[in-house]
Design a protein around this nucleic acid. Structure first.
Length: 884
RNA sequence: GCGAGGGUUGCAGAGCCUGGUCAAAUGCGCAGGACUUAAGAUCCUGUCCCUUAGUGGGUCCGUGGGUUCGAAUCCCAUCCCUCGCACCA
């Protein structure tokens, strides 16, 4: 057994020593940037699920490298974040310790996978030389008003005395205190004004070669809708209620208005009225108890009248104002017009509270009766009850009524986005500090660029969940850059998604200490040609990094606006039917497989079983299969005689394989590439000798998948260079000869026939077989020296195998060469096989002799062309069968 | 509900875009055989049904229709599954 393991180690070391994957900008070469989303270095290390992702990128990078591209393929670590901090709190230690240990493990594991990263560009965002530039970018945004602070409602756990991320709120309770309700607190928070780019982010989606579902998710997330703002006076108040609607055509059907319960105007409007107490109660209930369930569609509609009326500016009618749980404060203006006749939600609510229903759109052909409607009519139709707009098609009225309201100062056409500004404040220690100083005199003062980075202290003590920066004087107290008085630092840190929004740019120039990256270098390498990562980031990272790219472009640092034109979402790796993950307890770690088979086997399996975009099931048996293949491949190259000569068929097959594999690589169909390579390997493994060209091409084509073994075999073939840096084999379409391959069919059939006959006759290894091809008669005969006949007479039993295919004539020569090769199993037929031409007549005469000897035919003759020569068939011990 | 992607022969998973060469690749599993004292490994053969020495025939790619000389492949309808988004005004 080959020690694949030490082969892996050996080549990993050689790659590292020779720094063969290190790259520099080279304007003369075409660049290619392959990138996997950088991982959070979790303490538990990486498992096969991660490995699949990296091997995918690695295979791609290796392929592109061999295609002559200047390939940038880096790796780094998303090393800020909660798990390390929590581990630190638990152990009263420092997150840095956990993080750096985890990174070490990751690097070791990734190196063991044989990934061809340019390690010299590696980065980790918890290091000051990285987060310094987070802070720098923050300052740039701040200067442009794109980073700003405002009050926002956030989740707060009174037990922990800290703000929680959404993921830390489970069913309205704190994740650590399952009996503690999470409170919603209005806190001053930092935001990035991503909405400034909403429109461009939406428009540019069309430029991206991403999967449709991710693009659609982003479109939904950005959620652009064109509509109209309207405002109504409120009787007895100088406030107005402003609503957003996409259906101004239903304006005359408004029978009530609704505020979202948390809308700040609500409490103002009920202050001092008899409604105040009840409204407060309702608001509290909705905000606290129903916070996580109220958005469910099947949620019962609840609400109440708040004792106020708005005035319809056109009809002057009084319109009652409600609050209701189905109106969202975050969307639009946090208040809506309700048209129960034409909106199902409004309808249900109106029914429940006995609010009138007014029809303003009738479907073609009949009139709706509001008394008898069982649900809202949401379709199109003709306007009614709408003054001058009566009779108009409602779609046209959308535009006209909007204009009408705008003209009279009651409304305004507008575009609304669902996308919210990005809340980046985190009341946590383990993140990039927000570079802001609060000065009693000067207010909010940004840290000066030359004072960056604002460093996260190493000597803080973690004792509670609360951010230790809050009590760390040395960090906290700082001179105001403006006036010199003592100010206080912001203790909030940035969301870790800030780090990941530009790390791909830092790879282009990872060591730069003057700027986040040299624009020339970034403009050379970027955009990312192939980005690889999970689709779960569709509405997070994958929007943020587009936003950052556009911002940095507008800052003049980049000459493009999209970070990654091609995105590939790899599938999940399953085991026992569920996603492989630590929490499910079904992880397989690369080391396990590696120890047993060498890592190439695992790599091959990961790439082989399923198309990369689909989920796949890990199977230990399947790994065995990959291992078998690798062995076969190994022995085919190392044990076959390698020659310079080659048959035209071999050439044809080779070029066809190169073509297929190349195309499959381009299409990211790695599993099919491997299938193709397996077939070719099987083909040449059946031959006596293989051509140098085939061996060389095969080793090179498998190198992206099983690089270690291929390096070894490449050396075995007499090459001095690394196969990793070799040129990808070329193919010539003209050399692909489908016709030449047709003879394969003949060979296969012949082989099947021969094996069949041997099985029937129980031919043992001691027996000698001779194959005789008769081109003229389209037969291949097997001449078998049966042991028990050896001493009797000078005769042999003869088995004839007929090729029925008339093409035999054309390919006969080849068959006579190949059939023996096909049968070459040393243990099976030791002294087989030579072939020669004989005339059929001669064979027939032998057969006759034998027939006489046995008193029956001993030959199996499969007749096809020999209609005129009826063939008799018999097996020893069996009655003769006659066929025509 | 909306959107996206799927349903293929024991399992996994190709094929579908660019209809025929598709009973449908490849791997696994299973069965038989060779080898072996035996097992393992390896190799060969088979693996929808009926029948054969070779062959031939039938059924088949979620379901039902349609287009076509011809459909796993194109069109329509329908059921189911997965994943997003989800009372977005």
């Amino acid at each position: 057994m080959i020690d694949f393991n030490s082969i892996c180690k050996k080549w990993q070391k050689k790659w590292e020593d020779a720094e063969i994957f290190k790259v520099n900008e080279d304007p003369k070469k075409k660049k290619y940037y392959v990138l996997e989303m950088y991982p959070y270095p979790s303490g538990s290390g990486l498992h096969m699920g991660h490995a699949r992702n990296y091997v995918l990128g690695d295979s791609c990078a290796r392929y592109k490298r061999m295609r002559g591209f200047n390939v940038l393929y880096p790796m780094g670590y998303d090393s800020f974040g909660l798990p390390a901090e929590n581990a630190a709190i638990k152990a009263k230690s420092h997150p840095k310790i956990f993080t750096e240990k985890a990174i070490e493990t990751f690097i070791r594991q990734q190196k063991e996978l044989g990934l061809s990263y340019d390690w010299s560009r590696s980065l980790a965002c918890h290091k000051p030389d990285y987060y310094k530039w987070d802070q720098w970018i923050f300052l740039k945004m701040y200067a442009q008003g794109l980073a700003y602070k405002r009050k926002a409602a956030v989740n707060f756990c009174p037990e922990c005395n800290t703000v929680l991320a959404n993921e830390q709120v489970i069913g309205g309770k704190c994740w650590r205190h399952e009996n503690t309700d999470v409170e919603i607190k209005e806190l001053n928070q930092w935001f990035f004004k991503i909405t400034e780019y909403a429109d461009e982010l939406l428009r540019d989606i069309d430029k991206l070669q991403w999967s449709e579902d991710v693009k659609m998710m982003q479109r939904n997330w950005i959620g652009r809708s064109e509509g109209t703002l309207m405002w109504f006076d409120i009787r007895g108040s100088d406030r107005k209620i402003t609503v957003f609607t996409t259906r101004p055509d239903t304006f005359y059907g408004i029978t009530y208005l609704v505020y979202a319960p948390e809308h700040p105007d609500v409490l103002e409007l009920v202050k001092g009225t008899k409604y105040e107490e009840e409204v407060k109660k309702f608001v509290r209930k909705v905000i606290l108890e129903d916070r996580f369930t109220r958005t469910a569609e099947d949620k019962e509609k609840e609400g109440m009248f708040i004792g106020r009326y708005a005035i319809n500016p056109i009809t002057k009618e009084e319109i009652p104002i409600y609050i209701a749980n189905f109106v969202l404060y975050e969307y639009g203006t946090g208040a809506i017009i309700a048209v129960p006749a034409h909106d199902q939600r409004d309808f249900e609510f109106a029914k429940k509270f006995n609010i009138p229903i007014k029809v303003v759109i009738n479907p073609d052909g009949y009139e709706l009766n509001p008394e008898r409607m069982s649900r809202a009519y949401m379709g199109d139709g003709n306007m009614t009850n709408s003054d001058d707009f009566n009779g108009m098609f409602n779609r046209d009225a959308i535009e006209d009524i909007a204009k009408f309201l705008e003209k009279h100062g009651h409304g305004k056409k507008t575009v609304q986005y669902k996308l919210r500004d990005w809340l980046i404040s985190r009341q946590r220690f383990w993140g990039a500090p927000i570079p802001i100083i609060y000065c009693d005199k000067c207010g909010i003062v940004p840290v000066l660029e030359e004072d960056l980075p604002v460093i996260l202290p190493d000597d803080v003590v973690f004792e509670e969940a609360e951010n230790p920066l809050k009590h760390y004087e040395k960090f906290l107290n700082v001179k105001c850059p403006k006036c010199g008085a003592t100010g206080q630092r912001e203790t909030d840190t940035m969301d870790t998604f800030v780090d990941s929004s530009w790390y791909f740019l830092r790879y282009c120039d990872a060591k730069n200490d003057k700027q986040p990256f040299d624009p020339r270098k970034a403009n050379y390498w970027m955009p990312i040609d192939q980005y690889i990562g999970g689709r779960e980031h569709a509405c997070g990272h994958l929007i943020y990094f587009r936003f950052f790219t556009k911002f940095l472009r507008d800052l003049g640092l980049l000459n493009f606006g999209e970070p990654a034109l091609r995105l590939f979402n790899q599938g999940m790796l399953h085991k026992d039917g569920v996603v492989m993950s630590k929490s499910k307890g079904n992880v397989v770690i690369p080391e396990e497989v590696s120890k047993k088979y060498g890592i190439d086997t695992a790599r091959l399996f990961l790439m082989f079983v399923s198309s990369p975009g689909k989920d796949m099931e890990w199977s230990d048996d399947g790994v065995e299969g990959s291992f078998r293949f690798i062995n076969k491949f190994w022995f085919t190259i190392t044990e076959k005689k390698i020659t310079d000569s080659k048959s035209s068929k071999e050439v044809s097959k080779l070029h066809k394989t190169v073509k297929e594999v190349t195309e499959f690589f381009e299409g990211f169909e790695f599993n099919r590439a491997i299938m193709s390579l397996m077939q070719f390997t099987n083909y040449i493994s059946e031959m006596d000798e293989i051509s140098n060209e085939s061996a060389s091409a095969l080793v090179r084509m498998l190198a992206p998948f099983t690089p270690h073994i291929c390096e070894e075999l490449w050396k075995f073939l007499g090459n001095k260079n690394f196969v990793s840096l070799e040129k990808w084999p070329e193919y010539d379409e003209k050399l692909i000869d489908e016709e030449a391959e047709a003879s394969d069919v003949l060979v296969d059939r012949t082989r099947a026939d021969i094996v069949h006959v041997m099985n029937l006759l129980k031919i043992k290894k001691a027996e000698k077989i001779k194959l005789i091809t008769s081109i003229k008669w389209k037969y291949v005969f097997m001449e078998i020296m049966k042991k028990e006949l050896e001493n009797t007479r000078d005769v042999k039993s003869i088995i004839g195998v007929c090729m029925k295919n008339p093409e035999l004539k054309k390919h006969g020569q080849e068959i006579s060469k190949l059939v023996p090769a096909v049968l070459k199993d040393p243990r099976k037929i030791p002294e087989t096989v030579l072939s020669e031409e004989r005339e059929f007549e001669e064979l027939v005469s032998v057969k006759e002799k034998l027939s006489k000897f046995f008193g029956a035919d001993v030959a199996v003759v499969r007749a096809e062309e020999s209609k005129e020569k009826k063939a008799e068939v018999a097996l020893p011990g069996k009655p003769a069968i006659v066929i025509s």
